[in-house]
């Protein structure tokens, strides 16, 4: 909590303290990159919501128009058309929905699972800790694309299985962070006293311990959403992500690959969409990290 002098009409200075949230926001505002990232992200959410209502999925997004296929950017189709005549700009705008829902969903799910497992591991230590850590080691040992590929090939390719497959990586990340924070704080006096007055374990974890892990977790959320967007589009690129004809950005790049030499724009624009989205999230994540703990600032 920081102290700031507030001028009142009395001669006495009163110090008003700001909550951590407000303080973080104040510092974040100063970081131009982070603000750009935040604005872009909000815009993306707006585009997603807008696209769902504005576009007619069957007509605008997956409706084929063979006579208009493979046309370069023009006034009528700002980013050109693909091999079956679909407008690329519309598909990119609509495609934001897949990237956002899958990544936010996967990270959210991973967050809940990871925090629960990490707290249990960190708090209890011993055998449970070892077991949970072995499992996360296993999941680190196999590259996350392989894990996703196995899950998808077991249960078929659909948006839901993709989400589950991708949440594994997020969960292991959150579990590690939570566990580390929990283990650090576990020994503190106020925790011991809470324990001794009979507060149940889960209440201790939620009220006292988790708030202290909050900073690294928040930073990790934004960064993980970015990584998950890339993972989701990678899986769609490989053909085991969101099934056709959905306009997922990675899938669009995969289709465009065949026409790379004659219609290069098909390979460029969806990739730009992915890159700028992740860039915005990284800027935001970096800014948050600096804002939350200025001591770490470079």
């Amino acid at each position: 909590m920081a102290m700031v002098a507030v001028k009142k009409d009395t001669s006495e200075k009163v110090y008003k303290s700001r909550s951590m949230g407000a303080e973080t926001w104040r510092r974040l505002k100063k970081n131009k990159g982070a603000i750009i990232g935040l604005i872009f992200f909000i815009l993306l959410i707006a585009v997603t919501i807008f696209s769902s209502f504005y576009f007619n999925y069957d007509k605008d997004i997956i409706g084929q128009n063979i006579s208009q296929r493979l046309q370069g950017p023009s006034a009528q189709h700002l980013l050109g058309t693909d091999q079956v005549g679909r407008d690329i700009l519309y598909r990119i705008l609509y495609g934001a929905k897949y990237s956002l829902t899958i990544s936010c969903g996967a990270v959210g799910l991973g967050l809940i699972i990871g925090v629960i497992l990490g707290s249990i591991a960190g708090f209890h230590g011993g055998f449970i800790d070892d077991l949970i850590m072995r499992i996360t080691d296993v999941l680190y040992a196999v590259p996350n694309i392989m894990v996703a590929v196995i899950i998808v090939s077991l249960f078929g390719a659909s948006t839901l299985t993709l989400l589950i497959a991708l949440c594994v990586y997020a969960a292991t990340n959150f579990a590690r962070i939570t566990r580390a924070s929990v283990m650090t704080i576990r020994g503190e006096e106020y925790v011991e006293s809470a324990y001794s007055i009979g507060l149940p374990t889960w209440k201790i974890i939620i009220k006292h311990i988790l708030p202290n892990c909050l900073s690294p977790i928040i930073v990790q959320i934004t960064l993980l959403i970015g990584t998950t967007i890339i993972s989701a589009s990678s899986l769609s690129f490989l053909g085991i992500g969101v099934p056709a004809p959905a306009p997922e950005w990675g899938a669009m790049l995969s289709e465009g690959r065949e026409y790379m030499r004659t219609n290069a724009y098909m390979c460029v624009f969806p990739g730009l969409a992915i890159m700028f989205t992740v860039l915005a999230l990284n800027l935001l994540g970096d800014g948050l990290r600096d804002a939350i703990d200025p001591k770490l600032k470079r």
Binding site: G250, L253, M260, V268, G271, I274, M275, N282
Partner: peptide
């Protein structure tokens, strides 16, 4: 860091 590497490969 923000670029998907398969896209980089294509480019």
């Amino acid at each position: 860091v923000s670029m998907p590497n398969f896209w980089l490969g294509l480019l």
